[in-house]
Computed example of a mutant assay.
Amino acid sequence: MTRDMLSSVLDLARWAPSGDNTQPWRFEIVDEHLIRVHGFDTRDHVLYDYDGHPSHIAHGALLETMRIAASGFGLTTSWSISSGGEHRSPVYDVRFAPDATMVRDPLFDCIEARTVQRRPMKAAPLTGVQRQALIDAAGGDFSVQFFESWRDRGRVARLLWNSAKVRLTCPEAYPVHRDVIEWRARYSKDRIPEQAVGVNPATARLMQWVMQSWGRVQFFNRYLLGTVAPRIELDLLPGVFCAAHMLVRPKRPPTGLADWIQLGIAVQRIWMTATHLGLHLQPQMTPVIFRWYARAGRHFSRDPALFEQALRLSGDFEQIAEATPRDDFGFFARVGVSPQPRSRSLRHDLAALMKG
């Protein structure tokens, strides 16, 4: 086992998903058996990174991707958290060992193939085999709830429509929306390229102009129905046109960093299993995150009306899921069959992700 082999593992692992392609990690090869992952979160400037947990989920997805990648080189992995505190900058030690009996994980070929599909999918239902494979991928610590009928998909689409209004009218979310898109791009190493956003070119040009200032956003939202077009294209139509929406629910409340890491591991296995099955997936985390804020009593905006809207949306979400305010929601996504997206987020080159 050599450092070059570990570099090859990292070159695959860097394709792990993260919110808005933030890639909240840097790597350090300590020796031929140990990679140190220096994680971070974006809670101080990204509204959606509630207490850093979405970043922590991404860290779990990275660790699982490292495990799958290592299997292709005949290596086993084990990881531990080597930092404490409130986990704004958690550090993970990942140890590697050769294993002559190691069989390459069936998901190995899905590491780079896995991507996001934000456009409408086919409404063909999941097969029993597909549904069970997604449930099995989550593991025993999580349940997977599906919303598949036209009625249920319509209810979820309505939830997404209303959640998107909160998202698009929240001043604290504006800097994220302004900075996350790389306009007129098919690929992006550190953001979401315009062509992968899921809107048509005319809507994209309007969005680009409007989002140059919060004043423009407010004017369009107030007088020109500025949220309608993006919500139709990004939330309503995709919400209806898919095979199913699925909600991943922890069977016990997450109480520490390790629990969020385990959720991230489950999410990545579900996503890569969907890819392996010929399906596409799109995370729909906004309703989950606003519910985290609402049920914790956390006012996330200087506009108090938005918190009240988030409370109502939480109740709507719980009614759809037949859940109580005390139940934990971990990950929400839609899944289905669609053509391969022509545009996608790329990743930083490995050299740019190395510590120092």
Rank of each mutant, 00 (worst) to 15 (best):
L126N: 09
R36C: 12
Q132T: 13
I35E: 11
L346Q: 13
T22K: 10
F219Q: 09
S55D: 09
G154E: 10
M5S: 11
D49W: 02
R167P: 03
P98C: 08
V248K: 06
M1A: 09
L313I: 12
P325Y: 07
A351L: 13
A133F: 10
Q212F: 03
F331P: 01
G19F: 04
G264S: 01
L6Y: 04
A274H: 07
I81W: 00
V288T: 09
S338N: 10
V248G: 05
S80N: 14
H33C: 08
Y50F: 12
I68W: 04
S8W: 02
S188I: 05
A266D: 01
F96P: 08
F219Y: 07
P175K: 02
D328F: 13
R298D: 14
R342G: 15
M272C: 04
P90C: 01
M121N: 06
E148P: 08
S89L: 12
H56F: 02
F27T: 07
N221F: 04
T324Q: 08
G239R: 07
W15M: 07
Y223K: 11
W150R: 15
S314A: 14
L236G: 03
T227F: 06
N21S: 06
G19A: 09
F307W: 11
A296V: 02
P283D: 05
I289C: 01
M5P: 04
S343M: 03
G19Y: 10
G85M: 10
E112R: 15
V46D: 12
Q284C: 13
G330W: 00
V37A: 05
V248W: 05
H45F: 15
N162D: 14
R342A: 14
D349Y: 07
P98W: 08
P283H: 05
A229R: 11
Q23P: 10
R344H: 13
N162Y: 08
R119C: 11
H45P: 07
H56W: 09
